[in-house]
């Protein structure tokens, strides 16, 4: 589904990703761990088409499409979803309005019938409940005044609404209390199916107890320096990163 080959990315003339390769098949969950500043968020941004990230080499395809030449909104419409590490506020734009616009464009692109406002609201309320958010959040501005944990749950709610095929979750577990972590994990698990893949960026092995990954990768200084099964996460928790980085 997602094939990344030898990807090299520069930000403001500084090389951040230095030849990263990754192959993700439908239905798989890949966890990416690694020290601060190693390039995890950069990977999410460059895959989703954020401006300011210059690809200086390599390739990335999603379901056969060359991702790197598509506009950011095209990539989203093709089913790529990024849950942000730091969700931004858009004052005055209600979640309802924002999500309706989002769902409408994505559905339209995928040739699905438009949802009536009533059906949309029903669906949105349902997804709010699934992540334990009061449906009144739909009336509030996008992330406006949300607590850290509420922002993260709202990202998962959006993911559930859009039913993407590739979900990249950038530290969605950071700043969550134990109950919220469970809620987020349940949300992700409920979305798992054979056609959908996940990249889960995290610093904590704990999340992977709830969302059991097929593979775990260690990203360090712009490269994947080790890959393994879910045991790798446990090992990292115990020993830190230095033992691999030195190896």
């Amino acid at each position: 589904m997602l094939k990344i080959k030898n990807l090299q990315v520069k930000v403001e003339d500084k090389t951040i990703l230095k030849g990263l390769s990754l192959d993700i098949k439908p239905g798989e969950v890949h966890a990416i761990m690694g020290p601060n500043g190693s390039g995890k968020s950069t990977l999410g941004y460059v895959l989703s088409g954020r401006e300011g990230y210059e690809v200086s080499g390599g390739s990335a395809t999603l379901n056969g499409d060359n991702l790197l030449e598509l506009d950011a909104d095209e990539r989203a419409k093709k089913g790529l979803f990024l849950a942000f590490q730091y969700p931004v506020e858009i004052p005055g734009v209600s979640n309802m309005e924002f999500l309706k616009a989002s769902v409408d464009t994505v559905r339209d692109y995928q040739g699905k019938e438009a949802l009536s406002t009533v059906d949309f609201m029903k669906l949105a309320r349902e997804k709010c409940k699934a992540v334990n958010l009061d449906p009144n959040f739909l009336k509030r501005g996008v992330n406006e005044g949300f607590s850290g944990g509420e922002k993260k749950r709202s990202e998962i709610m959006q993911m559930m609404l859009l039913e993407p095929s590739l979900c990249i979750l950038d530290e969605t577990d950071s700043g969550l209390d134990i109950d919220a972590l469970q809620v987020v994990a349940d949300g992700v698990n409920a979305c798992r199916d054979e056609n959908r893949a996940f990249i889960i960026v995290t610093h904590y092995q704990r999340l992977l107890d709830y969302i059991v990954p097929d593979k775990v990768h260690v990203l360090s200084d712009g490269k994947i320096i080790k890959s393994g099964g879910k045991e790798l996460a446990l090992e990292l928790e115990e020993k830190g990163y230095s033992w691999i980085e030195k190896a």
């Binding site: 401006e51 950011a72 989203a76 990024l82 942000f84 924002f98 989002s102």
Partner: peptide, 15 residues
Amino acid sequence: SDDQLFLCLQRGIGA
């Protein structure tokens, strides 16, 4: 902000 705009784009909403 670029952040706000990118959030919209990432959700499929055109510029």
